[in-house]
């Protein structure tokens, strides 16, 4: 893990893989968003990541930091809803943490994403256990210290663990007790980002 070196092309591949997996899973994300949200998460994420891939292909950034900053900006300007600013902030902040470095290590990736997750928690005013994307992101980043596969597994487990939770943030929170028993769509899409990361790291 410690020897892995990740360049700008790797991050473009990650975003491309994320767009593909979100495309495949879009209907499921929207389905999860129906009982406790407003049935649009899949389509919004699909639109956003498609725009990210188009932007990165048109103007491939030179560094990992520039790649994630460009991806984050594109999400903010194309997704809308809460997902746009939250996912956009996650990637932008991680990109900023990389600075101008032409390559980053797996540990630097983990630290950058951790900074991104802190920014997401602050922006959304939420914490793990609130039935949000943090419930997949936080365990995913912790497990990233072990391996990409471990991170994918931990975030997937984190998303599944939102089922019995009572939503305290976002639209699902309006349902109160009735939010219990449903998997959070935001945590689910967050786990897909880690799945895409594990896929491109192979």
């Amino acid at each position: 893990m410690s020897e892995t070196v990740l360049d700008a092309a790797f991050f473009v591949r990650w975003m491309t893989a994320a767009a593909a997996v979100i495309d495949r899973e879009a209907d499921r994300l929207t389905e999860l968003d129906s009982p406790i949200g407003d049935a649009d998460h899949g389509r919004n994420m699909q639109r956003g990541f498609a725009a990210v891939v188009t932007a990165l292909e048109a103007e491939p950034p030179a560094t990992p930091g520039a790649t994630l900053i460009a991806a984050g900006r594109k999400l903010i300007s194309s997704v809308g809803g809460a997902s746009g600013p939250l996912y956009g902030t996650l990637l932008r902040r991680a990109g900023k943490a990389f600075g101008e470095a032409p390559q980053v290590s797996a540990e630097e990736l983990r630290a950058g994403l951790a900074a991104g997750v802190d920014a997401v928690a602050q922006l959304g005013g939420s914490a793990p256990g609130d039935k949000t994307m943090l419930d997949a992101l936080v365990p995913g980043i912790e497990a990233l210290a072990t391996s990409f596969d471990a991170a994918a597994a931990a975030s997937e487990k984190g998303a599944l663990a939102t089922v019995p939770m009572l939503a305290r943030k976002g639209r699902a929170s309006y349902l109160g007790e009735r939010s219990i028993g449903h998997q959070d769509p935001g945590a689910t899409s967050s786990a897909l980002l880690f799945a895409a990361l594990a896929e491109v790291a192979k």
Partner: peptide
């Protein structure tokens, strides 16, 4: 914005 989705900044 899109249907039931806030506009972008």
């Amino acid at each position: 914005g899109e249907v039931f989705t806030s506009p972008v900044p």
